[in-house]
């Protein structure tokens, strides 16, 4: 049996989940030192950023059947006990579910929030479940967001998960107008729903997408005047929770037919350069 050189141990360990790694710090002094080292954390982050790992522990805990969801493994800085600063999007093909994943700094815990909408003829039925990685358990929440539907993607900012919410069925949700939308959040620490005040967009109607610019919550408002002319405004909330701090950063003009490419779910990434 050969003894593996450290570089090969690193190669193998960097493919493991955070949970396994925290456990394997107990293997020996050298493993503890390796797994805790900033270099290793960086390698792990690079590899896991290219992979999507099924968080199987969570999967069985939601009682909904046939749910397949995947989340990007949370390497990040959790190994060094730093709070995670990046949102992790859960992917589901079923549009009646939305998920969010984030770090609860107050309780030092990772949480998954799952919202399921069921459309019944007489009433809408909303179920909210929240999973805690620390306690490895899932609980139902009585408190539900005051919207008829949450729209992906989910963005994690300031300890809260955010979605755009549809307030009424007056308009088709994909062609809806901004007056019918709001931004809802759930605080992972106290598990309470809230609303984020939106910027004063102007008079035109448009649809919204949530993004994160740097570490600030950002809104992309997409205004399509007609089939040949449209533009997208990028708004950033400089100071979380302060309505006046919303700033319009950019206006991107595009041809109308570009929109569908521009706004597929979750593929537009805004980076500060």
């Amino acid at each position: 049996m050969p003894t593996l050189p450290t570089e090969l141990v690193t190669e193998i360990l960097s493919r493991l989940t955070v949970k396994s790694l925290l456990k394997f710090k107990c293997v020996s002094k050298s493993w503890r030192a390796l797994i805790s080292s900033p270099e290793f954390v960086k390698t792990h982050l690079t590899i896991s950023a290219h992979q999507r790992v099924v968080l199987t522990e969570v999967r069985d805990l939601f009682s909904f059947r046939d749910v397949q969801y995947i989340l990007k493994d949370c390497s990040l800085n959790s190994l060094r006990n730093d709070p995670v600063t990046e949102a992790l999007d859960l992917v589901s093909d079923d549009c009646s579910f939305v998920y969010g994943f984030g770090y609860d700094e107050y309780n030092d815990d990772y949480k998954v929030v799952c919202v399921r909408h069921r459309f019944l003829i007489l009433e809408d039925h909303v179920v909210v479940k929240i999973y805690s990685l620390k306690s490895n358990s899932c609980s139902s929440m009585d408190d539900i967001p005051d919207v008829v539907r949450l729209i992906k993607p989910c963005k994690f900012v300031n300890g809260k998960l955010h979605w755009t919410g549809v307030l009424s069925w007056a308009n088709n949700i994909y062609g809806g107008f901004h007056k019918d939308w709001n931004i809802v959040s759930i605080d992972l620490a106290d598990e309470k729903w809230g609303e984020v005040e939106q910027p004063r967009y102007g008079e035109e109607d448009f649809s919204l997408n949530l993004e994160v610019l740097g570490s600030d919550l950002s809104v992309l408002s997409n205004c399509m005047k007609n089939y040949t002319e449209s533009h997208t405004e990028v708004w950033v909330m400089r100071e979380y929770g302060v309505k006046e701090s919303w700033t319009k950063m950019y206006t991107i003009k595009n041809r109308g037919d570009v929109i569908s490419l521009f706004f597929p779910q979750n593929t537009l990434h805004v980076e500060q350069r």
């Binding site: 049996m1 394997f24 710090k25 293997v27």
Partner: peptide, 29 residues
């Protein structure tokens, strides 16, 4: 893991407990 990789544990019991206390959930399930 120690057995599979032929690693001798050189951590003291206290050190091991410390690691477990940091993230007890990683050792359960």
């Amino acid at each position: 893991v120690r057995e599979m990789l032929k690693i001798t544990n050189d951590l003291t019991e206290e050190e091991e407990q410390e690691i477990i206390n940091d993230a007890p959930w990683a050792f359960e399930g």
